[in-house]
């Protein structure tokens, strides 16, 4: 089980959280202007790297706030957590 440091509540068990997938995916400014390809990419395509990945979590059983984490998808090590609206901190390392 992951130990996830909620920016508000501190380290808690993974079972208190829900996963939200890739972070920093903005809703299109003008969805009507998109081609079918672009809309399909927005709906169905997300990054799926083996290595560092910026992703969203929500502390469902705690403060109920969303936040972001940078986690290595190969080692599961969490390199950074940061609040919604903050820019992604630069972290290095991670699996190849």
């Amino acid at each position: 089980m992951l130990l996830i440091s909620c920016p508000n509540c501190g380290p808690r068990d993974e079972t208190e959280f829900h996963y939200g997938g890739q972070a920093h995916v903005a809703y299109p400014e003008d969805p009507n202007a998109l081609t079918d390809e672009e809309w399909g990419r927005y709906l169905f395509y997300r990054e799926n790297p083996k290595g560092l990945f910026a992703e969203r979590w929500v502390h469902s059983s705690g403060c109920r706030k969303w936040f972001n984490a940078v986690r290595d998808t190969a080692t599961y090590r969490i390199a950074a957590v940061y609040r919604m609206g903050e820019t992604q901190p630069s972290v290095t390392g991670g699996a190849k």
Partner: peptide, 13 residues
């Protein structure tokens, strides 16, 4: 397991 992962292992819960 809910999160993306390539680790060939998951959580005990």
């Amino acid at each position: 397991d809910s999160y993306n992962g390539y680790g060939q292992r998951g959580a005990f819960h």
